[in-house]
């Protein structure tokens, strides 16, 4: 029964991919719209992507491809880890201390809705060089997502857990370690997933505007140089890298929250 369901799941996933690629092929090849027809079809993209001697300089056999991936990954993860390092403690502190929450809450509420791209000029003026500016812009969105979700996580912990811990003789630091952190962890990890997605999102935007390397740069550059297959290669690579980074966070979260896994009946 279980294997049947699982097999069906994989078939459906494969069908989804095949359907999407077919739609792509059909709209480029057969749709009577000229703007669609000048885009590369799936086959030429794959041919370029896997070519040892790509027409536009980027394929899985060129070192440039990996340099770009490395730059983007490095920026996304630096921004992400900075966001976690600052956002999680800040969120916990905001959840823990009502005065501090009121003090900082209004400010965060106002800064958070500013789209990351709006920060780009300021970031370039503020930081020496493009690299820290791009990382800063990427960091900002990830930071807000992490902080807000951590705060929600702390606030959603049932008051009885605090009381139970105090009854059993826990000190304030015990409560922080034994109640607040584990209790907020599910929300924190939701926040980290969102933060990772948001980091890639604003990273690419930042790279398009202000970088010399990276997948966002590749996409924008390929557009300017009319190297259409390379645009799609850049996009697909972003999809893969983004998916892998989310999967990594999910994996870590599941390791840390086995109690939850098992309670939901998902564990072995």
């Amino acid at each position: 029964m279980n294997t049947v369901v699982r097999n069906e799941k994989y078939w459906l996933m494969a069908a989804g991919y095949i359907g999407a690629i077919f739609l792509w092929y059909a709209s480029v090849k057969w749709l009577p719209i000229s703007s669609f027809n000048r885009l590369p079809d799936p086959l030429s993209v794959i041919r370029e992507w896997l070519s040892p001697d790509p027409s536009y300089g980027i394929s899985i056999f060129t070192s440039d491809y990996y340099v770009h991936i490395w730059y983007s990954t490095y920026r996304a993860f630096t921004a992400f880890f900075l966001a976690v390092l600052l956002g999680v403690p800040l969120g916990i502190f905001m959840g823990w201390n009502a005065k501090f929450r009121e003090f900082s809450g209004a400010l965060v509420g106002l800064l958070r809705p500013i789209p990351p791209l709006a920060w780009v000029p300021l970031a370039i003026l503020l930081f020496p060089g493009v690299e820290p500016a791009v990382i800063f812009v990427t960091f900002l969105v990830a930071f807000f997502a992490t902080t807000m979700n951590t705060l929600v996580g702390v606030r959603s912990i049932d008051e009885d857990y605090f009381r139970a811990a105090r009854c059993l003789g826990a000190s304030r630091t015990d409560i922080l370690r034994d109640v607040i952190v584990p209790g907020a962890l599910p929300h924190i990890f939701t926040g980290l997933q969102i933060a990772m997605g948001a980091a890639w999102f604003s990273l690419v935007a930042g790279e398009m505007i202000a970088a010399q390397y990276g997948l966002g740069y590749v996409i924008w550059e390929a557009y300017n140089l009319i190297q259409y297959p390379t645009i799609v290669i850049g996009m697909a690579t972003l999809g893969i890298v983004g998916f892998l980074s989310s999967a990594a966070i999910r994996w870590v979260g599941q390791r840390l929250m086995q109690w939850r896994e098992e309670s939901l009946g998902l564990g072995g």
């Binding site: 857990y161 009381r163 139970a164 009854c167 034994d178 109640v179 109690w259 939850r260």
Partner: peptide, 21 residues
């Protein structure tokens, strides 16, 4: 008064720490 282990409460909705065995 302050809470202490000489007066332990069992709560209405249950307050076992779900993240501890």
């Amino acid at each position: 008064p302050s809470p202490g282990a000489d007066r332990v409460v069992v709560f209405q909705n249950g307050a076992l720490f779900p993240w501890k065995t």
